[in-house]
Simulated scan of single mutants.
Amino acid sequence: MTLLSKRSLVEQAVDQLRERIAHGAWAVGQRLPTEPELATELGISRNTVREAMRVLAFSGLVEVRQGDGSYLRTAVDPLRALQALSRCDLAQAREARHILEAEAIGLAALRRTDEDLKGLREALEHSSAHYHDDLERYISCDLVFHQRMVDAAHNPALSELYRYFSGVVAATLHHNLSHAPRCQSVFDLHGQILDAIEQRDSDTAKALSRTLINES
């Protein structure tokens, strides 16, 4: 069974918006319709539109300007080069995360800055507030935390690869957390990984990351 067979409403909204972009609905640099307008057009909630726009911003298609709206950044979807990701099954997605995410986090433990740590603590706090609450909101916050861990490796190639891969991570989380109760001990691994990064303990950071990937 592929991840796409268990797509969330957010993923479906992302697909519809990508299709419109690919067909030239908006010009590069053009301001996109507001969240209420898109919600009406797509027949979905404003919250779903908001989360979909965040995914598009992560992928580099859309630029969200605080207080001003969302603008089309490029009409060429960066994810097309990685279309195989959407066909990953759960085991394949886990393998890819081990290779990309765990190794990047090991580097983050060696290269992180105090500013990285500050951003990671803030992201983890936001994620923690939603772990036992709204699933879509939690996944959105969790992706920010994981992206910031990878970013702390200070390797632009790894950061961009993981940004492209974030859709698969989101789908994996949605599938697993929808089919099993949320376990606090699994979430607590995030804090333990952050502690290892702060202590510049690369081996422990990688080991904990692999445990989290296997259990989440």
Rank of each mutant, 00 (worst) to 15 (best):
T2Y: 02
L3P: 02
L4F: 11
S5E: 07
R7S: 08
S8M: 01
S8C: 02
V10S: 01
Q12E: 11
D15E: 12
R20W: 15
G24V: 11
G29E: 06
Q30G: 06
R31N: 04
L32W: 06
T34C: 05
P36Q: 08
A39I: 12
A39R: 09
E41Q: 14
L42C: 11
L42Y: 11
S45T: 13
R46T: 13
R50D: 10
L56N: 14
A57C: 14
V62Y: 12
E63R: 14
E63Q: 13
R65I: 14
Q66K: 13
D68H: 10
S70A: 15
A75M: 00
A75K: 00
L79T: 10
R80P: 00
R80F: 00
Q83L: 09
L85K: 00
C88G: 00
C88H: 03
D89T: 09
A93T: 08
E95M: 06
A96N: 05
R97A: 08
H98C: 05
I99M: 08
I99Q: 08
E101D: 06
A102E: 06
A104K: 05
L107S: 04
L110G: 03
R111M: 08
R112M: 10
T113G: 05
D114R: 12
E115D: 12
L117R: 13
L117H: 12
K118T: 13
L120H: 13
E122D: 15
A123P: 15
L124H: 15
E125Y: 09
E125A: 13
H126W: 11
S127P: 12
A129E: 13
H132T: 07
D134F: 05
E136W: 08
E136L: 13
R137Y: 08
Y138I: 08
S140R: 14
H146E: 14
V150N: 05
V150Q: 06
D151M: 06
H154T: 02
P156N: 04
A157F: 12
L161H: 12
Y162T: 07
F165G: 02
F165A: 03
G167N: 05
G167S: 02
V168H: 00
V169C: 03
V169L: 04
A171T: 00
H174W: 01
H174G: 01
H174R: 01
N176E: 02
L177Q: 02
S178C: 04
H179K: 02
D188V: 02
G191D: 12
A196I: 08
I197D: 10
Q199M: 10
S202A: 15
D203N: 07
A207R: 13
R210K: 14
L212P: 07
I213R: 04
I213H: 03
